[in-house]
């Protein structure tokens, strides 16, 4: 029988090698994640700024569209709320839909008021 003490320690060395391998992996990943966290912070800043811009523009746009319409009590003027199911990748597409939808609303409103003019 070989020396069981040496054999025991040799087998335990496998665990030590695995630990070394895993430790190196963790160290490498930690470095990568540091970079990633920095990029993610930048992305958050960008997204937050974009969100603020979009919110401000849409709020302004809605105000313009609904200005002077408060006398029209039959018209539902509830402001728009963020759609949680919206796909962030379709933001520009949604913004591009705003003008056509606004034009469609003005045409429909003019017809609803005829023969009177828009306020």
């Amino acid at each position: 029988m070989n020396d069981p003490v040496a054999e025991y320690k040799r087998l335990l060395d496998t665990a030590h090698q695995a630990a070394d391998t895993h430790r190196k992996h963790e160290q490498r990943r930690a470095l990568e994640l540091t970079e990633h966290i920095r990029d993610a912070s930048k992305a958050i800043t960008t997204a937050s700024a974009r969100e603020a811009d979009v919110t401000r523009e849409i709020t302004g746009w809605w105000s313009n569209v609904t200005r002077n319409l408060t006398s029209l009590v039959w018209l539902d003027l509830t402001p728009p709320a963020p759609d949680p199911g919206a796909d962030p990748r379709r933001l520009n597409a949604h913004l591009a839909e705003v003008e056509p939808a606004t034009s469609a609303f003005r045409v429909a409103l003019r017809r609803a008021l005829w023969p009177r003019k828009l306020p």
Binding site: I58, G85, L109
Partner: peptide, 23 residues
Amino acid sequence: ANAALATLRTVLGRALGAAAAAR
């Protein structure tokens, strides 16, 4: 006219939601 305004509101809501979701 109400339906057209609702459509506009929906479009605006999606835009708001998309921006928030990106963040």
